[in-house]
Write a protein that binds this DNA or RNA. Structure first.
Lengths: 105, 105
DNA sequence: CCGCATCCAGGCGGATACTG
DNA sequence: CAGTATCCGCCTGGATGCGG
């Protein structure tokens, strides 16, 4: 499928946006892009997100197959988040969105 | 400014999305991409949008400099909408969003 | 340490009827 | 023809306190 032809409309663009358009999702993905992180680390990197919302966004990203959650059966608990292959395929999209916003026209 | 370096975080990606993430905006831009259109034509091309919401989306796109509104002082009224240069610079973004959603992983 | 439960507020979009 | 006006439901995200 070639991009230059037959984007029959932009149906589907909304789908992509629905996946990355949570309040903290781009930031979460950005930080996880630097490498696997524990929940507490993410919490500190995104301090303005309340725990409820942060968990919510992580769950949605996990549900959409963008990130992976790995829980270790330890005490105290340890949970690691990392970006999946599908998630990595989003990098060019987020890069372009970022780039457009910083462009002078 | 190069895209491959220093996207200091993804701050800004949200801005781009806020511009194109109205319910009918991608579809509106898609249709206007084919050429200048009158309000009534857009209304027929996007029939599921109520007049209120359609106008609202057009106004926001205009306010953000994505489309241009040209009103002719005639009776009956005639209004034409077209995509601006800034709006055209969004095409690659929307194309990529569309492409990602149709990708098999 | 890593969450979940509850309550709440603001904004977006839908339905319908009306106007210069 | 090209919009306005009004009312209203839903969903996202925020605040706060509790639990395994």
């Amino acid at each position: 499928m070639e991009m230059n032809q037959l984007n029959s409309s932009y149906i589907g663009a909304e789908y992509t946006m629905s996946i990355i358009s949570g309040k903290w999702k781009p930031l979460i993905i950005y930080h996880l892009r630097q490498g696997t992180k524990r929940y507490g680390q993410i919490k500190r990197l995104v301090p303005d997100a309340s725990p409820k919302v942060l968990i919510q966004q992580l769950k949605e990203l996990e549900h959409d197959g963008i990130i992976n959650r790995k829980s270790y059966p330890e005490v105290p608990p340890k949970v690691e988040y990392s970006v999946t292959a599908k998630g990595r395929s989003l990098y060019p999209v987020l890069d372009l969105l970022w780039f457009w916003s910083h462009q002078k026209l």
